[in-house]
Nucleic acid binder design. Structure first.
Lengths: 151, 151
DNA sequence: TTTACTGCAAAGGGTTTGCAACATG
DNA sequence: CATGTTGCAAACCCTTTGCAGTAAA
């Protein structure tokens, strides 16, 4: 994951400004937390790591950041939203999801497979009149720690 | 989508019995509604089409049916769960999702691509110690009706 | 000095649960 | 009759929103 190809803070600042928003301390803290997490994290996980920020601020800021294209909101297996940095800041990747506990791990996909998906994607876009903006290829199952734990 | 390869009601009845559950009128109605929908539908859509059933019963029954492996619960773009019949009753397929309105369309994927995903899947299972049970390959974008509507 | 941002508390919306009545094996 | 199922209403949890005060351009 090439976090430092471009400066995340500069990019965030620029994209927020474009939307008439400010890159405040809270928002910077969220971005840092997302960078450190290096996997999609829930809002609860985010504010646990950043004491002092109101939940409502976290939700509002993440929503503003998503609007600006700095972060991405995911809904995976459970019904809790998870956030990660936008793909142009971290590189394109996919997810390995535990359906038991909801945890998510980033994975990279071989280029051939990625190309196959893109080709298929354009085909479907044409036949269904959809504007396809991205895709997700998630592998779902049971993570090591959940499979040792009794269910 | 080969709904009639095996009889859905017989299968549902059998799988529920295996779990010590009964195949009641409400559950039969839900299964019929899901068959007719032919795409993942929300609980609200389901009970709108089947007046007389309490919401709580719909939720409880869908949960029992999911446990029995008769239906599958999805969470897509919005935070509303959608249900569809289990894949062994309808055939393996993937989803075309509108991120604007949350609607979902079933799509089939070429065999080569499907094979590529399976191969990749086993690879990741090995390297991460995950038991991978299935995958999802969703194409996400904006559906025709949302792209004509003003945003 | 206007506009965005913040925290707090309250409301919202999908989902789950307690309970007493009902239905099924 | 013993156990699973139902509807109703209340509770639950994640998320959003109203508001009055604060900070930034």
């Amino acid at each position: 994951m090439q976090h430092h190809q471009i400066d995340v803070h500069d990019t965030a600042d620029e994209r927020l400004r474009r939307d008439g928003q400010r890159y405040t301390a809270n928002r910077r803290v969220l971005i840092d937390a997302l960078r450190e997490a290096d996997r999609p994290v829930t809002v609860l996980e985010l504010i646990d790591g950043t004491p002092g920020m109101a939940q409502s601020s976290a939700y509002r800021n993440l929503s503003v950041l998503e609007e600006a294209g700095v972060v991405r909101r995911l809904v995976t297996a459970d019904d809790t939203a998870r956030y990660e940095l936008a793909e142009d800041l971290t590189g394109h990747h996919h997810h390995l999801i535990c359906e038991r506990c909801g945890s998510v791990i980033d994975i990279d996909v071989p280029t051939e497979l990625e190309d196959g998906v893109s080709a298929f994607s354009s085909l479907i876009a044409d036949t269904h009149g959809f504007r396809i903006e991205h895709h997700r290829l998630d592998l779902m199952g049971v993570c090591p720690s959940c499979s040792t734990a009794a269910h």
